[in-house]
Design a protein around this nucleic acid. Structure first.
Length: 191
DNA sequence: CACGCGATTTGG
DNA sequence: CAAATCGCGTGT
């Protein structure tokens, strides 16, 4: 099983968001391997996308999105949850893909411990939940997918029939048009 | 330097 | 349906 390199993320965020479905996301912490299959993503596409943090331009927080693709953009939301994104697109084109849900595969015991004993079905079924389950926080912000702490692996593309596309969630602050864009992708079978 | 709010989750 | 909880962006 080969890893996805930085070049893979050079494509457009919408393509990457769609293509990442079915691919494994893996985390190594304390020698423990924890991870699962990506089953839900969202694309945030540049300064013109009013749902994207980069729509406010280049700031200390968003500068990572302006850099090279294949790096993690991780931030804290509501003072308690982390969001995991991967920067995509060419340098200078601030785009990112938010990982919203996983189908747990490796290190489920570890996930249970970090998630405080919730039902197994709720271990990674949300962007904040999966970060907690995999022990992901801002310490990984700006790191490369080529690193050893967190990475993605290649896998056969999932067929279109298994994919749903719809509007992104939690972006009521965006323009009506941007709220409508079908840039949220999910796998039917494994979600 | 003060203020408002968020790419969410959880419990009431 | 509202609290939790704090860093960031914005305006003074």
């Amino acid at each position: 099983m080969s890893r996805l390199g930085q070049d893979y993320f050079r494509q457009d965020a919408v393509c990457v968001a769609r293509d990442l479905l079915g691919k494994p996301l893996l985390r190594r912490q304390d020698g423990q391997l924890v991870g699962g299959i990506i089953v839900e993503t969202e694309a945030y596409v540049g300064e013109d996308d009013t749902a994207c943090h980069a729509s406010r331009g280049r700031t200390a927080r968003t500068q990572i999105m302006y850099g090279a693709p294949g790096h993690y953009y991780i931030y804290l939301i509501y003072g308690m949850y982390h969001m995991l994104n991967i920067v995509t697109g060419e340098e200078g084109h601030p785009q990112a893909v938010l990982i919203r849900a996983l189908h747990p595969q490796q290190g489920i015991e570890q996930m249970r411990a970090l998630r405080g004993g919730v039902a197994d079905q709720q271990l990674c079924n949300g962007p904040g939940k999966l970060c907690q389950a995999l022990g992901i926080d801002k310490a990984l912000n700006g790191m490369s997918v080529a690193g050893t702490a967190l990475w993605l692996e290649d896998a056969a593309p999932v067929e279109d029939a298994a994919v749903t596309a719809g509007p992104r969630v939690g972006i009521g602050y965006a323009s009506p048009e941007d709220q409508q864009r079908p840039w949220r992708f999910a796998l039917r079978s494994l979600s």
